[in-house]
Computed example of a mutant assay.
Amino acid sequence: MRLLVMFDLPMETASQRREYRKFRKYLIKQGVFMLQESNYCKMVPNSSAGEFIVEGLRSNKPPEGSVQILKITEKQFAKMEYLVGHSINNVINDDRRLVIL
């Protein structure tokens, strides 16, 4: 399954920018990768592991702004359409992308 993390955090003051950087660094440290600016994704093996990540996000969420989490299956994620200026054919976007360490 995949966790999609979408957030909108204020960045008007120095403390808000610091909280934004701190949250973003936490996401990267947890192995969450950026899909787009303020849209991140994490692959998890099952829902209990996903719940563990969600609890960590709850405890590290900045005091201001909103953070949204969407849980989807790998099959649903693979159906995502990429609408860009030109077609990208070398992106592996299915189960073959999974690396087991």
Rank of each mutant, 00 (worst) to 15 (best):
E55H: 08
M1Y: 04
V44C: 08
M34C: 10
F7P: 07
M34H: 07
F33V: 12
I72Y: 02
P62M: 01
N90Y: 00
L4E: 06
N60A: 12
E12G: 15
P63N: 03
N39D: 01
P10W: 08
M6P: 02
R96I: 05
M80A: 14
L4I: 15
A49M: 05
R96Q: 12
K61M: 14
E19H: 15
I100D: 11
L83I: 13
I100N: 07
S47E: 13
L35C: 07
N46G: 09
N89W: 02
E64H: 03
E19V: 01
R18N: 10
M34G: 06
N39W: 02
R17Y: 01
D95C: 00
K79L: 07
G65V: 06
I53P: 01
S47F: 01
L9V: 11
M1F: 02
S87Q: 12
I92M: 06
T13E: 03
V54W: 00
I92Y: 02
P10A: 03
I72K: 03
G56T: 04
V44A: 03
Y82H: 14
Q30S: 05
D8R: 04
I28H: 09
K71M: 01
V84L: 06
V91R: 11
S47N: 09
P45V: 07
V54I: 15
E81M: 10
I100R: 14
N93P: 01
D95G: 05
I100Q: 11
L27D: 06
I28T: 12
P45T: 09
T73H: 03
D8E: 07
L70N: 00
I28L: 09
M11T: 14
Y40P: 02
R21I: 06
R17V: 06
T13V: 00
D8G: 05
N60H: 15
F7D: 03
T73C: 15
I72P: 01
L83E: 01
A14S: 12
E74N: 13
K71P: 00
P62G: 04
L98R: 12
E74F: 07
M1R: 09
P62W: 00
E37F: 11
G56I: 04
F7I: 08
E51S: 10
Y82E: 04
Q30W: 02
M11I: 13
P63H: 08
F7Y: 15
V54L: 12
R97G: 13
K29Q: 13
N60S: 14
H86I: 12
E19P: 01
N89L: 08
A49H: 07
D94T: 05
V99H: 09
G85E: 13
A78I: 04
L101I: 05
A49F: 00
M1T: 12
K71F: 06
L27Q: 04
K75S: 10
K61V: 07
V84K: 10
L101M: 05
L4K: 11
P63R: 10
E51K: 14
F52Y: 13
V99L: 05
L9R: 05
S66T: 14
Q36K: 15
F7K: 05
